Simulated scan of single mutants.
Amino acid sequence: MESSRNLKMKFDDLFDVLVKDLTENQPADTSPALKWFQQVLLYNVPHGKKNRGLTVVQSYEFLIGEKKEMSDEDFKITAVVGWCIELLQAFFLVSDDVMDHSITRRGRPCWYTVPGVGLIAMNDALYIESSVYKLLKKYIRNKPYYIDIVDLFHETIHQTIVGQCLDLLTSKEVNLDGFTLDRYNAIVKYKTAYYSFHLPVACAIYMVGINDERSHQLAKDILLKMGEYFQVQDDYLDCFGDPELTGKLGTDIEDNKCSWLIVQAWSKADNRQKEILKVNYGKPEECNLKMVKMVYEELNLRTVYEDYEAKSFQEISKLIEGIDSCLPKTMFNEFAKKIYKRNK
């Protein structure tokens, strides 16, 4: 299997080709829009860790096994699908940042805050989404799995939008009693787990010709659990992570987000601590932030998180060990190791 560094370099090299596909040889009277969209793509798409996109390529390698070497054509097609997921990620992030009034993303100002952009960013987000289907049509239209992949993207977008709606509605809650573990798990599953974990691997599974329902369901069960674990990590890092490593300033407390930390805190707090949380959670001032974090420290949520992390990893490992289909256990184990105890 190719080294991660070489794989990432080859993956990155394809991006400029795809930008040209999307912005060149188009109707002349759309020229101003195309110049703008080129900026949109270059600013918003290629600067993340690219884990989702690379996962398509890596999954494909695992699935074809050692008996067959990935051809240049195999790489290109899987990388294109991977970049489509990176585009999808950018679509979600650009619109999400507007809705959440976020300030930074991947260590840079959010796109909508860039001078001259503003709410044009919402149209830019829609443009990025539509680009996914332009590329899928260009590169895999004649493949037997085309319909399955397109359908998977449509379904995943719908799931993620449902999750975002749950997240936004919950963040409007005045009463923290609505911040339950059930609500949190629903937000995580739909907003994050489907597109971040299930989509990349499911694409690769279809691309190698595995279509049986059982294999896809086994993969989904494991990947959604990984997605839950990943989001809990994200929530923890939003509060306790180093912005130099994460690339963003956490705003879950100020934004009244139904994060894993507030769900845990509310379920464990005594009356005094609940009163502090009621008064300060969802407020923008530094003093409010400090009071919430004080309660988090009193409740020893760092240790609660460490216990969750260990238990969750064990549950994921058990699910992987129970695989009884053609899916390779090594693939899931490698992906689980990558996210275990991450700090960014």
Rank of each mutant, 00 (worst) to 15 (best):
I103Y: 13
T55Q: 06
K143Y: 05
L126M: 13
R5L: 14
K50Y: 00
Q159R: 08
D238R: 02
G65W: 13
I323D: 03
S4A: 15
L301D: 02
T23R: 08
S312V: 12
E69H: 15
K290D: 12
T23W: 04
K138H: 10
E173M: 07
P243G: 09
V132L: 11
N25I: 12
M9N: 11
S71T: 15
W83V: 05
S71P: 15
M294N: 15
S196R: 02
Q273F: 03
L18H: 01
V292Q: 04
F332K: 00
D151H: 05
I316D: 03
Q26W: 11
I276R: 02
T78A: 14
V81G: 04
L277M: 09
W83N: 05
I140E: 06
M207W: 08
T303A: 14
K10L: 09
A90I: 08
L14F: 05
M291K: 11
K10C: 11
L223G: 04
K189F: 05
K278P: 03
G227I: 05
T251I: 12
L181Q: 14
Q89T: 06
F230V: 04
M294E: 12
K311S: 11
K20A: 13
D255L: 00
D234P: 00
N185Y: 06
Q314I: 12
L181D: 14
M122A: 13
K137R: 07
L181G: 07
E69S: 14
G65P: 11
T303N: 12
D255K: 01
D255E: 09
D96L: 06
N256F: 03
Y190S: 06
K138D: 10
A310R: 10
L34R: 15
Y305F: 15
F92C: 01
V56D: 02
I253F: 00
F335C: 08
G53I: 03
Y145P: 03
E254V: 01
V80S: 04
W36M: 08
N25M: 13
V188C: 05
T113S: 14
I339N: 06
V188D: 03
S102I: 04
D238S: 06
C287L: 13
Q231R: 09
K137M: 06
M294D: 15
S171N: 07
L168Q: 06
